[in-house]
Lab assay of single mutants.
Amino acid sequence: RRRVRAILPYTKVPDTDEISFLKGDMFIVHNELEDGWMWVTNLRTDEQGLIVEDLVEEVG
């Protein structure tokens, strides 16, 4: 499975499927959606939700 790491922190918009995260958080990518969004699991918090790919980098 594809893994990505947050390069910046992010605070979710209330009442959306987004998740908040810290710089350095690792995610497993489940689905890549339109307009650069990804459905992921945050490995630190075990939370699932949407993040935008501009805020993460690939992990080898």
Rank of each mutant, 00 (worst) to 15 (best):
I19W: 01
R5P: 01
V29K: 02
E58Q: 09
P14M: 09
P9G: 13
D54S: 13
P14R: 08
N42P: 01
L43W: 05
I51V: 12
R3H: 11
G60S: 14
R1V: 15
D15M: 11
M38L: 14
G60P: 12
V56M: 09
R1F: 15
G36H: 08
E58N: 12
E18W: 04
V59W: 12
N31S: 15
T45D: 04
L22K: 11
K12S: 10
L33P: 09
R3S: 08
H30R: 06
G49Y: 01
M38A: 04
V52W: 15
W37E: 04
A6T: 02
L33E: 08
R44N: 06
E57I: 10
L8E: 10
A6F: 02
V59P: 06
M38W: 06
I51M: 04
D46C: 15
D15A: 10
G36N: 07
L33W: 12
V59F: 11
R3A: 07
E47T: 06
L8G: 12
D46S: 15
S20M: 02
I28A: 08
I51N: 00
R44S: 07
D15Y: 12
G36E: 03
L8S: 14
M26A: 06
L43G: 03
V13R: 14
G60Y: 15
T16D: 02
P14N: 10
R2K: 10
K12D: 03
E58C: 08
R2A: 06
K12W: 03
T16N: 04
N42E: 01
I51G: 01
W39D: 03
R5F: 07
L22V: 11
E58V: 09
D46N: 15
N42V: 02
I19K: 00
S20L: 01
D35F: 12
K12R: 12
F27V: 01
R5S: 06
R44F: 05
D15R: 08
L8Q: 15
M38S: 04
E32A: 11
D17S: 13
E32Q: 12
G60T: 14
K23S: 10
A6H: 00
H30D: 07
E34C: 14
I19Q: 01
E18R: 05
I51Q: 01
I7H: 06
I28R: 05
G36Y: 04
V40I: 02
I51R: 01
E58M: 07
V29D: 00
L55W: 11
G49E: 01
E47P: 01
R44E: 05
R44C: 08
G36M: 05
G49A: 01
N31F: 15
D25A: 02
G24A: 05
D46G: 15
T45S: 08
G49L: 01
G24Y: 07
K23R: 13
M26F: 11
H30N: 07
F21L: 03
R44I: 04
E18N: 04
D17C: 12
R44Y: 05
A6V: 01
L33R: 13
D17Y: 12
N42Q: 07
L22Q: 13
S20H: 03
P9N: 13
K12M: 06
T45P: 02
N31G: 11
A6Y: 02
T41N: 04
W39T: 04
R3W: 15
T45H: 02
T16F: 02
T11A: 08
R2I: 06
M26Y: 12
T45I: 02
V52K: 15
E18Y: 04
V56T: 11
I28Y: 08
Y10K: 05
R1Y: 15
Q48K: 12
D25I: 02
V40E: 00
Q48D: 09
E34K: 14
E32T: 13
I28P: 00
V4G: 02
R1W: 15
V29H: 02
L55G: 05
N42A: 10
E18T: 07
F27H: 02
T11M: 11
I51W: 01
M38I: 10
L8D: 07
S20C: 04
L55H: 13
I51K: 00
V56C: 08
Q48R: 11
N31V: 14
T41D: 02
L55A: 11
E32H: 09
V59R: 05
I28K: 06
G36F: 04
A6I: 02
T11V: 12
D15G: 13
S20P: 03
G60A: 14
L43Y: 06
L43C: 12
K12N: 05
A6E: 00
D35S: 12
N31H: 13
D46I: 12
Q48V: 12
R1G: 15
L50N: 04
F27D: 00
L43E: 11
L8Y: 14
R2S: 06
T16C: 05
P14E: 12
I28G: 03
L22N: 11
K23P: 09
G24K: 03
S20Y: 02
K12P: 07
I51S: 01
V59Y: 11
D25F: 03
V4H: 02
D25Q: 01
D46P: 01
D35H: 12
L43I: 12
H30K: 05
W37T: 09
Y10G: 03
D54P: 06
R44P: 00
E47K: 07
V40Y: 01
H30V: 08
